[in-house]
Amino acid sequence: MNEAVATVLGEAFPDRSVERLTAAGVSWNGANETVGVVFADGARAFCKVAVDGDGTRVARELAVLRHVTTRRPIAAPEVLAADSGAGVPYLITAPAPGRELLGVWEELGEGDGGEADREALLRRVGATLATLHAARFDRHAEIVGGDGRGGLDLDPAPWPDVLLKTIDRTREIGTSERLADHYDAVIDCVEANRDRLCDAPAALLHGDVAMPNLFVDDAGAGRGGGVEEDDGLAPIDWELADVGDPARDLVRAEDQLLNGFDSEGPERYAAALRAGYRERAGGLPEGFAARRPVYEVVRMLGRSGFIDQWTTHLDEPTDALVERAEAELRARLAAV
């Protein structure tokens, strides 16, 4: 057992025996380690530790998990134990309800009508995002913690500055500095478009809507949540959440769910995601089209900062991917 994980589990559950640890899926976050835990009594959990010793991500995720489970009609894993101030900061949760979206997605593509079923699933994802974004905040802000009862502790700042902090966090968790100059180019783009960004609405953003971070719980769909019905989707991994422009969350979700390194998924799938959002919210976020090109530039860091991971994932030479990333960034900057 990893020493950090062993320390955390001993601190959090001193009277429980661990039978084994299991893989928790693929992660491109170099600052965390996450493992599945099987206790001797058969109970399961997931343990995330900040291997870099920085507890701010744990504090943020813990606060948002408590917020969405107490104040929003959105399912999320139960928090079993957490300590953002420990020598090894950690967050331990129960398993998310349902099945990982990726597995459901792959199964839907195997039979007749699979495309229509996938579109229906994406409409549910869009609706869940709209539900998350429904409550508006007075100001944009970083989330720095919570009050333990579902309230969020916020550090307000103009949206461009909050967005720049997310770029800093991407650099922190990135796994490659091969294209470090891309960070500077993206920062310059955000600074040059401050006026375009400043008037964006302010909502709670998930910040990392990828297939491994969504669980489909058909048994839970339709449960009343106090405001709207639960869509049967449970997001996990909230550590990149902030209070920002909902258009950014929607652009990122479309990219992470549907696109490849330098290719776009079928337009009908993107349209289904946006349709689900519109149906729930009454329309796309205000200013979506105007700000989208800036967020597509920012999304390049999901390639540039993890080029080594993409090399392994695509089984292609790093130099070839670097060349393609350079060309893609130039194209996106030109479109702003």
Rank of each mutant, 00 (worst) to 15 (best):
G224W: 12
G225D: 09
G225T: 09
G226I: 09
V227L: 13
E228K: 06
E229N: 10
D230H: 15
D230Y: 14
G232F: 05
G232S: 08
L233P: 08
L233K: 01
L233A: 04
A234C: 02
P235E: 13
W238Y: 15
D242T: 15
D242K: 05
D242E: 06
G244H: 08
D245G: 06
P246K: 04
R248F: 15
R248E: 15
D249G: 02
D249C: 01
L250F: 04
A253H: 08
Q256E: 07
L257W: 09
F261L: 06
F261E: 12
D262Y: 02
P266H: 04
R268W: 01
Y269S: 04
A272D: 04
L273A: 00
R274Y: 15
R274C: 13
A275Y: 00
Y277V: 02
R278A: 14
R280V: 08
G282F: 09
G282L: 09
P285G: 06
P285I: 07
P285L: 11
E286A: 12
G287S: 05
A290L: 12
P293G: 12
P293H: 10
V294F: 06
V298D: 12
V298E: 14
V298Y: 08
R299D: 15
M300F: 03
L301Q: 00
G302S: 02
G302R: 01
S304C: 07
F306I: 12
H313Y: 14
H313C: 11
P317G: 15
L321R: 09
R324L: 11
A325G: 13
A325E: 10
E326V: 15
L333T: 10
